[in-house]
Design a protein around this nucleic acid. Sequence first.
DNA 1: ATAGGGTTAG
Length: 390
Amino acid sequence: MSLLSVSSILPPPRLGTFSSCFQLLTLSSSPSIISVAHFRAQRNYIPHSTHIPDSHLKLQRLLTENKSGFKNLDNALSLFRKMLKMQPLPCHFHFCQLLTTLVKMKQYQVAFSLFREMCTLSIPVSIITFNIAINCCCHSNRVDYAFSLLATTFKRGFVPNVVTYNTLIRGLLSQHKFAEARLFFANLIKFRQVQPNVVTFTTMIDGLCKTGHTDMALSLFRFMEKSDCEPNTVTYNAIVNSLCKRGLVDDALNLHSRMMDEGIFPDVWTYSPIIQVLCSLKRWEEVGLLLDQMIHDMKISPDVHTFTILVDAYSKSGKLDDAKHLIQIMNERGENPDIVTYTSLMQGYCSQGQMDEALAMLNTIRSKKIMPTCYTYSILNNSIYNLELT
DNA sequence: ATAGGGTTAG
């Protein structure tokens, strides 16, 4: 059964919106009552809107400096408190910047509670603020809250946009609510709520793949290829990743060549899953060729994930010195190994029965102030348990 | 200033 009929999928372009924009533009360029002479007469006048208080300039600098994440959560929270006390209040843009930074720090619940506080205190919000909050709910696995926020959005007179809907679709799919996601997507199109874009389709395709509905994902992908909304690298990557997960590495390799033929450039996200599955199949020669192509021909640098895949592959084949050497290369290149990298090497030591080395690894992790995860302890526990059995 | 993708255990 096809997901959608072709005719229902793309609403006609919204000429109304474009033409009214155009009208506005024409009006604003019509002879104006404000002339150069007007400004000359008042040359000492500084318009209110251009005056930025020092506190706001300082705030802007702080937000820009820390935009990929504050050193710790308290810094972000105390900045929020300061912002609330500022006179005049910082603009909407700055509050959004702070919330976005918290999202980058994966502090979804904190970001959401700040959003709630903003609403309680009647700090101006917009559809963008709501979208950030909806995204936080989805990432905290509370897609139910996300939908109640959608209702609030309507109640407050904001118009949800394609970002709102894409976020909600992803939220439903990440909660394995496939039927709901599909219905929501179909209704958006049926009732012309929004014009889907490449992110909408890619989100659906990726979610369909991950919920085991690969046939539907492929038909949506084929539909995109024929439509005005052409697949991009991320769309191809969703399919490549799914093929790799299903062990269909040759299909993945074919798709990889096809995307290049179509003029869509692969990125590190395309290569990593293919390299991973080739490693698991011990097709080492091809791993080498692909890495060479990626690094030298395509000029794509392996990142933490790619390196970790290789560290894991070496560890699993007992080549612990090579794995250690890779970690050294990572450090030299500034691709800092993370908990997954170290856990992979630690597992290598465990499976070789080198428990002293494995425990030393745990100490290294601690000394680097990296938080071990349940994987780290579970691997250690299982090895100790297995040793006791033998 | 808002949305999409890859790595580790049993």
